[in-house]
């Protein structure tokens, strides 16, 4: 424990409106904290910079899974356990449930939230590749109002997002149009459980007689943010899976990824394994 907790302020308003009001009014910026699986680690290590925090834990307005005929809407403060236990999510968005299942241990899934995982904006986070592959939308809220944007536009640069200072991530929307799509997700971590990913790939695709009709690829740890691999997708669209297509796709992957050497892996390993994973998926089509 390398921080002095007496130097930190934490407030826990009872409603979302109250939280938004504080964010709107406060001259010094509050940092939202939900399940604490990221910020409390920083606190323990003595590197939690913000001194004023505002709790979103257990805010009913943010912890929900709403199912409409067209969409599943997941509140930002919904835990990974909530997601794993939800029958519609597990049935229709199985790779999201799967990604939730390897986001830390059970204890951390009981506290960690989908919104926290996104807003923390780690390039290695577990749920973003899947949300990118599903082409999710994110809804942002402030006292100024509500706006919904495609999730693919949310991450701007390393650890920077489209959230304004007074804004909160409210929810994530997944369209219920996955019928007929094939999905794939695989995380390569430092070990089987409780691991930060070295590389992860999620794919949602459809094909007709061996020709790829649509494909979306989300990836972790290959760029400075969670990323859609658009060039790779383009190289595969309307193509039959042949060795030549695969070779082109592999080249596209290398062209659009900028992985790094870090404490967990090497850049070279990351891009080749990403290509291997995508090839592994293509071979199953």
């Amino acid at each position: 424990m390398r921080s002095n907790v007496t130097e930190y302020e934490l407030t826990a308003p009872r409603s979302l409106d109250a939280v938004l009001q504080i964010l709107a009014d406060s001259p010094d910026r509050y940092t939202p904290i939900a399940g604490g699986t990221e910020l409390m680690v920083a606190l323990g290590a003595g590197r939690l910079q913000p001194k004023k925090l505002i709790s979103l834990w257990n805010l009913k307005e943010l912890r929900f899974i709403e199912v409409t005929p067209d969409a599943v809407i997941i509140g930002a403060a919904t835990t990974f356990t909530d997601i794993r236990k939800h029958p519609i999510v597990t049935a229709e968005f199985s790779i999201l449930a799967q990604a939730a299942s390897w986001t830390g241990s059970i204890a951390n899934q009981n506290r960690g939230t989908l919104g926290g995982n996104i807003v923390n904006a780690s390039p290695a986070a577990d749920s973003p590749p899947v949300l990118l592959a599903y082409d999710a939308a994110v809804t942002l809220v402030s006292t100024r109002g509500i706006r919904t944007i495609p999730y693919r536009d949310f991450h701007i640069s390393y650890k920077r997002t489209d959230l304004a200072q007074d804004e909160l991530l409210h929810s994530i929307t997944l369209s219920r149009n996955m019928h007929g799509y094939t999905t794939y997700v695989r995380k390569v971590g430092t070990r089987n459980a409780q691991a930060i990913s070295k590389v992860a790939v999620a794919i949602v695709a459809s094909s007709n007689h061996g020709v790829i009709e649509s494909i979306r690829i989300g990836a972790a740890s290959l760029r400075e943010t969670p990323a859609r691999l658009v060039a790779t997708e383009q190289s595969l669209l309307k193509q039959k899976i042949t060795p030549a297509t695969i070779a082109k796709a592999r080249a596209a992957i290398l062209s659009e990824t900028i992985p790094i050497d870090d404490i967990r892996s090497t850049a070279k390993y990351r891009s080749v394994v990403a290509a291997n994973l995508i090839e592994e998926f293509l071979q199953t089509l």
């Binding site: 604490g36 699986t37 680690v41 290590a45």
Partner: peptide
């Protein structure tokens, strides 16, 4: 306290029936 970062589970307790790492729970919550 084994690690102070939610990694080892030595601090695990039940909170409203759910297993949590107590090193990652601010008391106000």
């Amino acid at each position: 306290e084994g690690c102070g970062e939610g990694e080892c589970g030595a601090c695990a307790v039940l909170m409203n029936g759910d297993l949590v790492n107590s090193c990652l729970v601010p008391i106000l919550q």
